[in-house]
Amino acid sequence: MLELLSYDFMQRSLLAAAMVGGLCSVIGVFVVLRGLAFVGAGTAHAAFAGVALAYLIGWPPLLLAILFGLVTVWITGWVEEKGTMKLDVSIGILYTTTMALAILFIGLMKTYNAEVYGYLFGNVLAVTVEELKTISALSIVVLGIILLFSKELYFISFDQEMAEASGVPARMMFFLLLTLVALTVVVSLKTVGAILVFAMILIPASTAYQLTHSLSTLTWYSMIIGITCAVGGVLLSAVWDIPSGPAIVLLSTFLFFLSVLLSPKRLRHSIGSV
């Protein structure tokens, strides 16, 4: 175990996992509270389509992933605001469309490209120094913005109309939140992959949700759980020689079910109903 930690690649992947785990679980709090869970999933697949296109035409993958991710969340937000279509329907359409585009782009490639599939399933053990720098920079930007606007983001997650009525620029904050979700997804793509990033956003926040009734405590719990699962998952994957993405997600799921069983909310409820 200790010997493993002395390898450069292992140190890099643990650092990347900790950052992605922390970032996803903090943004996840707002995603869970504002009811945007599927926006995360939709965005991840859109970003993956961006990556596939980038490899097809020889552009930087990160750039197109961000572009595809942002366009998807903004369309989703705009549709929700207009109220012309249910959110789950619009996301469902965008999700499948972008996935179809991804498959199309991959199909158009002349040769098999393993790197593209890396973005679909994630491989934290292969994170390079360059990628680590990008992850750090984007994580600082996203967490910094969340810290600056946390009170407004909490308020719109609680009740957007109320927030707007009391003088908070709620619409702007909603689109800011969507933008941060897209950036988080893109940051995490290489590490955990398009399919599993959704779990990293959703599960730690939902686990923390079981354990507290306070907003500020919720965020701290979520972050601690997110980092623990990401780091723990990477260590498990190295020790047992299993893929890192599933290791992280299954560890998170295990903790989630544990929190449901031990939830003070649930215990209180069952005591109350006796």
């Binding site: 509270l33 609680f158 009740d159 109309e161 109320m162 949700y209 507290t212 009734h213 306070s214 907003l215 919720l218």
Partner: peptide
């Protein structure tokens, strides 16, 4: 209109 089980 408001989710009364919101953790707050």
């Amino acid at each position: 209109v408001v989710d009364r089980n919101f953790p707050v």
